Computed example of a mutant assay.
Amino acid sequence: MEQPRVWRSSVDRRYYKQSEPRIYEAQMIQPSDITGIEAVTILDEVLGLAAPQYVLRQICRPVRMDSLTARVDIATKLTGQEKVPPLVEAELSSQSYTTVDFDLWKNVVHIVVSDEARKKAAHDILGLHVSDAARDLARMENKQIMEELAGATDVAGSDWGDTANNPYEDIVGAITAIEGNGYPADFIAADPLVWADFLSNPFVRGTMQGVQYPAGKVFPVPGLPGITGYSDGALPDTVAYVGSRAAPAVVFGEGPTEAARYRDEKSGYDAYIIRSWLQPELVLSDAIQELTGVHA
């Protein structure tokens, strides 16, 4: 059967009809496009449910695009000259750039609801599938960002679960190295087990008098002003990543997201396909460090 397609622009966040699989045209969805609106609703629900689970996307600098390939120059740093004497010309310096070539890949979730399941179910089968789809889109994205983070510079850390070790010594050492390279360190990303060791360490507990424990996956790190913590189970449970989002250490190519609805009358089911194009890329290895061995 005909497959109504809609796609969501990552640039302007609007929904459009797609006349052909390879053509992304600015044809706005109209009230008369009933099948398109249904696909939009499913897509909106999935993205809305998935958004809070995109934890690791927040440590990346987003590069939004509606094409699947692009060449982007990322400005890195400019070196100034200190204490220039009067009547002395300062040395010339120029901005440095890192070129990133994007060739976005796609993550796909295929939701199928059979006629029998729809007619026999006592629950909202489609709603349950939508929730599962959102969770899996987030799982795939976080996993792929984790694979990029694995290319960070390894630095040996200490076991934060050992009460004799001070986690701040490891973290401040990484921050000093990153900021010595000219980038402001602003995040730590780790598995929940690593954060449990960190927050229960006596050196950390001493800085938390009157401070509320983290209530979510994104939180200010106690004792480290300006540093935001990110907790996600996709990360290895023995390491912690200290890095600079502002640098950026990692960029995230965010492409369009597409949804299509179809029915297979012969087999007796309705289906929705959701495709999300993306690509995380580690671009500045000097702006991130991987502390190893922080959880036994």
Rank of each mutant, 00 (worst) to 15 (best):
V11L: 12
A215C: 00
G127M: 09
A271F: 04
Q3H: 12
W7T: 04
G206W: 02
G180W: 02
I288G: 04
H295M: 03
I29K: 06
L282T: 02
Q53L: 14
Y97N: 11
A50F: 04
Y15G: 06
A117I: 02
Y54A: 04
H123Q: 15
S10G: 13
S9L: 07
Q212M: 12
Q209H: 05
R118W: 10
G226V: 07
P220T: 10
E254Y: 02
I227P: 05
E116F: 13
A70E: 11
V6C: 10
L149H: 05
N165W: 03
T69I: 08
T292L: 09
T207M: 11
A177Q: 11
W195N: 03
V294A: 05
K217I: 01
D115I: 01
D170K: 07
P222W: 05
A122P: 00
P4R: 03
S267M: 13
V130H: 02
S93V: 04
D33N: 14
L284K: 05
D286G: 00
N165S: 06
N201D: 06
A133W: 01
I171E: 08
T41Q: 15
E2D: 11
P192F: 08
V251I: 08
E258K: 04
T98Y: 02
V283K: 01
D44K: 13
P220M: 07
V194I: 11
A174T: 03
D66A: 07
A156R: 11
L199Y: 12
G226A: 09
V112C: 02
V84T: 13
R8V: 03
D197F: 01
P184C: 03
Y24G: 00
E38G: 03
T79N: 12
S244E: 06
L291E: 07
M140S: 10
S231P: 06
S267G: 14
E2S: 10
A150F: 02
E179P: 01
T99H: 05
K120E: 12
S276R: 15
T163P: 00
K83A: 15
A287K: 08
D136C: 00
I227G: 08
T69A: 14
L278C: 06
V109N: 04
A196V: 03
T238D: 15
N181K: 11
I274G: 00
R275Y: 00
E290I: 08
A185M: 09
P192L: 06
V113E: 15
